[in-house]
Design a protein around this nucleic acid. Structure first.
Lengths: 439, 439
DNA sequence: ACAGTTTCCCGTAAATGC
DNA sequence: TGCATTTACGGGAAACTG
């Protein structure tokens, strides 16, 4: 009987962690006043319990010490309705989905001096689901908890909140959930962090970070002899994560294709850029992310050997506002510099190492012919005759073989991650697998 | 005493009509859940009443018949706090400002068949401010009402709502406020309507409609021998107002300068455009609003005499999304067509009748030199040498005299409207002056 | 004054109701 | 089903608050 009781007591689990429908890639971040959903499952597969178990969500249940010690904000649900577990058709488990939950802040938290307080995005909270089990004389209080969540009030806080969620998830093993983690946050190894970062680029741009890119990030983030990354370095002083997340946002909105193609070297120092390009012929260029603009920006650098010694130029980086107006491939395609004799020419010829611009980006150039409208008596915006487009660059296109090979390799790479990606999207599992405590 | 009582009973007035801070140009439109403000003044200039009069706002007070007859929606204030009248420093009147008011819908209105119901933007509501006056044995219930307001729930309804407000204001004289006006809306004369329309362009683009423009609008809107405009024609069947308001929005966001300059002919039929341009030399163009796109769009038409008979071309109209990317002057400046021998040339040379393009728009062209950034090792986005810009058009610029005269005339025009504009912005007074019932 | 945080609200998209 | 209306919520900016 005792074993049975213990099994039952642990039979309730949070099957789908709290997730805002508007932020599917970033579970465990909850915005006040915005709906999120959670699914709860009772693992004891007994249909006779149907409609017997009434589940109630409670915010920050039994974590009073946090509220008094660290002046966390208080929250409650806007409408805390209970739900009754009902059978799930495929396997008969008892399930319910809370799909219209939302939070409001309960004002009036204890005032602590500003230094002693954590940033709001470092506050970890939990939601517990409780139910009372009554059957054949047995009476049992059963509860399940979500993973720690971060509550924000504006979308500008998403980046910081996600940093906390990632950090916490890399550190928590088993069920030791320390909601005060960021009072004294342990460091991560670069090995751990680099995996998570690469993952983020896979989720956003369908391509991981390569060795070179990771090595640049490493130099930026790790300055510890033990290969450790400290929370303050990652999220505070230098804002490494905010910078990276700005780039992720830029990729998501404007550069998914280019990033997936691997056309963006992206993370490379200015010095290294110059080194690489100086060995190449005039017109070779590469794309790199701005290191100074914190909201995500990308520029191109190219080499010019015309005056004897090679010289590397870089363009003022494009931000999201500029990429909204014109795509990066189009900027690349139409960029022109005044040359000798007042002729305007485009200095960008080969994507590093030697891919002709049109091979790399040709299919992304805006086809002005598409804009042609039939009828209505209107003239299209641009002429649609391309017979006199600029002479194709002199270098031969790469051999078909090589292209094919790379493409296949790429496909394989992507596939190998498919399952993990799905898991990630669905129930929030990181490279370091976080198993739910099931029976 | 009876006279005194009557004076007092009418002493409370709504000094500033309900206005959302986010829609200062469109008073009397209230969006549920969005703050608006109203100011109330007690005209009896007696400071001893200070802090005696407690004013309470009531929504749709004493208009029960509307609710039952026409199934109007019901609303209430989100927080209906009373305010106490206090002295206003300059002249000692008793004043209070309700500056945080907002509405919520009370659900569950009676269901009427769809035909018998008005559109929500045709529902006219009022807010009354009531107070109880007690002094030297006198006991008096005093109240003041706002002008009729329209309550909307999304900004997409602003245009329709404003049509109702304008129509109602042109029709209501004195204090006969018919909240059921749109059950059987009386027509307006074209004379009345044209004034209001012109006014709208003055408010939005700082320039009224001229005779020609009004005449085009007249042909579109009036099809009645008596020169009357019917509500359905204006706001329903042909959506004349929605089309015009789309253009007003386009002007507000992207064309204020050009409209103010008078560079936009705008309202002119396609046929008339051809007639005008065919008499001009090759390269003469004019700007006109699209008649088919209902969200505001502008295109240019130009004449080409190259092949013997003059031919007039028009470009596919630019919408707000396109003007967000590049300004109209820049589109005009950079437009190019493939000419003979594959040369790209800009067919736009003179703004109708004969103003060289650079004279009319030169100062609006984006100066790429401005984008040059000093230092940081970045190259600016475009070359900044303009020594080889396109040859200036052969036609001489207009004589300075003419320019000056026009400018002065324009200034005078504007000034003459200044006072009325102020009133308009402040307390909602239309060309047909709507006087508040004051003592 | 100021930085971290929340509120406000438009504009678009999606959901809802009839 | 289609249309009218409301709700949802990202994103930018203003307001708040200690």
């Amino acid at each position: 009987l005792s074993l049975f009781t213990q099994l039952l007591a642990n039979a309730l689990v949070v099957e789908k962690q709290p997730i805002m429908s508007s932020l599917p890639q970033r579970p465990l971040i909850l915005k006040t006043g915005v709906h999120f959903s959670v699914r709860v499952r009772f693992l004891a597969n007994l249909p006779e319990f149907k409609c017997l178990l009434k589940v109630k969500p409670v915010f920050d249940k039994d974590v009073e010490e946090i509220k008094t010690v660290k002046w966390f904000r208080h929250f409650d649900f806007n409408s805390d309705e209970c739900k009754v577990l009902d059978v799930d058709s495929p396997n008969g488990d008892l399930v319910t989905e809370f799909d219209q939950m939302s939070l409001k802040e309960i004002k009036g938290r204890a005032k602590g001096s500003i230094e002693s307080r954590l940033a709001v995005t470092e506050e970890l909270h939990i939601i517990k689901f409780v139910t009372e089990f009554r059957h054949v004389g047995l009476e049992l209080n059963i509860e399940a908890s979500t993973l720690p969540v971060v509550v924000i009030s504006a979308t500008t806080q998403v980046s910081s909140a996600w940093a906390s969620i990632m950090w916490n998830n890399m550190l928590s093993t088993g069920d030791s959930r320390n909601l005060q983690l960021f009072v004294d946050p342990p460091p991560l190894t670069w090995e751990q962090l680099s995996q998570v970062l690469s993952w983020q680029f896979l989720c956003t741009g369908k391509r991981e970070l390569d060795e070179n890119q990771l090595s640049v990030l490493r130099d930026k983030i790790v300055d510890d002899p033990d290969d450790l990354v400290h929370w303050s370095k990652f999220s505070k002083n230098e804002n490494a994560w905010l910078w990276i997340d700005g780039i992720l946002n830029l990729i998501k909105k404007h550069l998914v294709d280019l990033w997936q193609d691997g056309s963006i070297m992206g993370f490379i120092s200015r010095e290294r850029t110059a080194e690489l390009l100086k060995e190449k012929r005039t017109g070779t260029f590469l794309l790199r992310f701005s290191e100074s603009k914190t909201n995500g920006a990308i520029s191109f650098s190219w080499v010019d050997n015309a005056n004897g010694a090679p010289f590397v130029h870089s363009i003022d980086p494009y931000t999201k506002d500029e990429l909204k107006k014109t795509s990066l491939p189009d900027y690349i395609n139409t960029y022109s510099l005044r040359g000798r004799k007042s002729r305007h020419t485009n200095p960008l010829l080969y994507l590093y190492p030697d891919i002709p611009k049109d091979t790399a980006f040709g299919h992304y150039f805006t086809n002005t012919a598409e804009k042609m409208l039939a009828g209505h008596g209107y003239v299209p915006r641009k002429s649609w005759d391309f017979s006199d487009k600029p002479t194709p660059p002199p270098s031969p296109p790469r051999e078909p073989n090589t292209d094919m090979e790379m493409e296949m390799d790429f496909e394989r790479k992507l596939e190998s991650h498919e399952l993990i990606q799905e898991l990630f999207a669905d129930s929030f599992i990181f490279p370091t697998l976080q198993l739910m405590d099931i029976l």
